[in-house]
């Protein structure tokens, strides 16, 4: 008799035609427009960052699989590639490559493997890597270069949200035009500048039902309402909801980060609470916080509530009675 006769895994148990690799490669395909956009705007820098992050993620994953004596085939499920791609998407183009590698190692090691690997992590691994980099190298992570399609001759360059927070851009009238935000002709992280590319990828994921439509919709709704109230009250000081939707990492976060199956709730009600919460926290950070952008922290913040949401929004089992 061995102890391994019964394999128990935590509920819920779904049967589905989709396999992990199938879902993961759909995500990879959906990221293609944003990847091409980043290559177009930031050229070689983007390519090097993407390659470094993906390679470092795969290498770290392989080392951990080896240490834990698990089959190396798990490397091919695509999850490490996605973590690498997503991490690279959230990095500023001018970031030194060694820092990107450190971020990728942390993302897989601390963000995923210490919890037990794919399916057990509490936080989105790519965002864990980015949060680490943000805190470890605050200067490099907030130094921006203009997209190479723009011919501007300045040493430093700010993101549209940085202009909004620190330069009072609404009152000065120097806010980036929505057209630039939509196509991606602004400063920012690799994958966040082009709203168009992200929307194409997001719609692809929605049409394939890989992600839960409630999450992007909930985030967009709550952020629009939140920033809309302030904009209507004082349009001279606050930017419009449309600006907030197109600027920064919002679409990237809403379509690709918050929707991570492992770290988002499973019940519809829980999903709504989670998505609306993310939108509101983003609004709070952008309008009143010390940082210009809050997508990363708000997703990580709401990730912590996922187990709680799953527990408290669980539908009653058939025949179960409400406690007296």
């Amino acid at each position: 008799m061995t102890e391994k006769m019964l394999i128990t895994q935590s509920s819920p148990h779904f049967r589905d035609k989709d396999s992990v690799p199938k879902i993961m490669y759909a995500v990879v395909i959906s990221l293609a427009p944003a990847v091409f956009a980043s290559l177009y705007f930031f050229r070689l820098r983007a390519l090097l960052l993407l390659l470094c992050c993906v390679a470092a993620c795969l290498a770290t994953e392989a080392i951990f699989l080896r240490l834990r004596k698990k089959p190396l085939q798990a490397l091919l499920d695509g999850s490490a590639i996605i973590t690498g791609l997503l991490l690279a998407m959230t990095l500023p183009p001018s970031l030194p490559l060694d820092m990107a590698v450190i971020g990728a190692v942390i993302a897989i090691a601390i963000g995923k493997q210490v919890f037990g690997g794919l399916g057990y992590n509490i936080f989105n691994p790519a965002l864990v890597g980015r949060a680490f980099l943000q805190t470890a190298f605050p200067v490099a992570m907030t130094t921006w270069i203009p997209p190479l399609t723009k011919t501007i001759n300045t040493a430093t360059y700010a993101t549209p949200l940085g202009d909004l927070k620190f330069q009072d851009a609404v009152a000065q009238g120097t806010l980036a035009p929505l057209k630039d935000l939509f196509f991606g002709n602004t400063g920012g992280c690799l994958g966040e500048t082009s709203a168009l590319a992200l929307i194409i990828g997001g719609l692809f994921l929605l049409s394939r039902r890989v992600i839960d439509w409630r999450i992007p919709l909930g985030i967009i709704l709550s952020l629009s309402v939140f920033t809309g109230i302030f904009w209507l009250a004082n349009p001279v000081k606050y930017a419009s909801p449309l600006f907030h939707l197109l600027a920064g990492g919002l679409l990237l976060g809403a379509f690709f980060m918050a929707t991570d199956m492992v770290t988002s709730p499973i019940t519809p009600l829980g999903t709504w609470v989670y998505a609306l919460g993310i939108g509101i926290v983003i609004g709070l950070v952008r309008l009143f916080g010390g940082f210009p952008e809050g997508v990363m922290y708000s997703i990580l913040f709401m990730n912590t509530f996922v187990p709680l949401l799953n527990r408290h929004t669980r539908p009653r089992i058939l025949g179960e009675r409400r406690a007296q």
Partner: peptide, 22 residues
Amino acid sequence: FTPWIIMILPAGAFLALGILLG
């Protein structure tokens, strides 16, 4: 070498202690 500022912040303390305990 660029210092990893996170390591002198509280977050770095938790990370380093966690790894040591592990």
